[in-house]
Amino acid sequence: METPNALAAERLAWLMDSWTSVEVRTLVAMRNHQASGDEMQYSSTTTTNHYIETVDGKRAFEEHTVSSDGAPMTCNYYTDGTQSATVYIGTLPNGEETESVMIRRSFGMDDRGWHHCPEPLMYFYAGLRPLHVVLADADYLGTSRHLDRDCHVFLVDRTAGKIQQDTVYHLDQATAIPLKVCMYQDEDTRAGDQPTTVWAAKSFDEVGGRPFPLNSEQRIYLADNPSKPYIEREIVVESLTFDQSYPTSTFQPTPGPRARVLNEITREFTPPKEEATFTEVSQPIRAVPNRNWSDSVPTLTLGFGLLVLTTSVVLWWRRR
Rank of each mutant, 00 (worst) to 15 (best):
Y123M: 11
H170A: 14
Y169D: 05
Y169K: 09
L135H: 04
R129W: 07
Y169H: 04
C151L: 02
L131I: 00
H146V: 09
E119Y: 09
L171A: 03
F124A: 10
Y140F: 15
T167A: 06
L121W: 14
V134W: 00
L135K: 07
V153I: 07
Y140C: 02
L155H: 04
H146T: 04
V153Y: 08
T159V: 12
T167M: 04
L121G: 13
V134G: 00
Q164M: 10
Y125K: 09
C151I: 05
L121I: 15
C151Q: 04
Y169N: 08
Q164S: 11
V133I: 12
Y125M: 09
Q164D: 07
R149V: 06
H152W: 14
L141N: 12
Q165I: 03
T159P: 00
A136H: 06
P118E: 10
R129N: 14
R149Y: 08
G127T: 01
G142L: 08
S144W: 11
G127S: 04
M122A: 15
L128I: 00
V168D: 01
L135G: 03
A126K: 08
G161E: 03
D166A: 05
V156C: 07
D166W: 02
H170I: 07
R129E: 15
A138F: 07
Q164H: 10
V168H: 04
Y125E: 11
V133H: 11
A138G: 03
R145C: 11
D137I: 04
A160W: 02
P130Q: 02
V156Q: 01
R129V: 09
T159W: 00
S144D: 15
